[in-house]
Design a binder for these strands. Sequence first.
DNA 1: GATATTAATCGTAATATTGCAATGAACAAA
DNA 2: TTTGTTCATTGCAATATTACGATTAATATC
Lengths: 110, 110
Amino acid sequence: MGLTKSEIFTDQQNEISTFAKAFAHPARVAILQHLFNIDTCVCGDLVNEIGLAQPTISQHLKELKQLGLIKGNIEGTSVCYCINKENWAQMKDILSPFLNQDIIKKATCC
Amino acid sequence: MGLTKSEIFTDQQNEISTFAKAFAHPARVAILQHLFNIDTCVCGDLVNEIGLAQPTISQHLKELKQLGLIKGNIEGTSVCYCINKENWAQMKDILSPFLNQDIIKKATCC
DNA sequence: GATATTAATCGTAATATTGCAATGAACAAA
DNA sequence: TTTGTTCATTGCAATATTACGATTAATATC
């Protein structure tokens, strides 16, 4: 069927997987890293930086924007994309407890 | 088309996205959370805990095992799955710097 | 041996994702 | 107004992912 059964999972589990999905493609990782390292950024920059076609980059940017991890302002003919710091912090608040959880009990079986 | 161009990205970017992919499905998040909270765990347990069919759970477990995030020992008729603590720590060492990076410069555009 | 239990594997269907050529929309410069 | 630039959108093809019924493999129990 190929359709994730989101309704059987908790909101927290769905949130974690949704944010993880944002990072589940190296192009989006590269885009975010570049946005962190440069102050201002247009899409054309990213096309040169990353070796993918312009529509592909645009699509990845759209996904990141829909998730709220980046925001973009129109600047004349170009568009200025940057990290949405507030939402990035919120994302970390959701992912960090999951990544940093500890094992409560330890059985002998493994 | 439909094929991620891994070769144009750095090893680090590919590693981050590969681990993120492990968490990009709520069922795998739920499986990992359950393994953290219980000392020993068999596949049947997970089928009851999560509302997916046994082959589906088995497939998700296989992916997590291939990534090294969990390990499983055969215990008679059942299988004992648990978190691979060493590899989990290694995964955190790769993901944390990415999640915790700070913006170096801040332009006025956004 | 026969039967039951547990989990992996196979096969298949449905949906999602990735990538890009072609096109379109918006705006700046000539 | 025409031309060029920049990025979004559309449409499509190829691959990946998700899910599960049916089956198989392995082991325990009778």
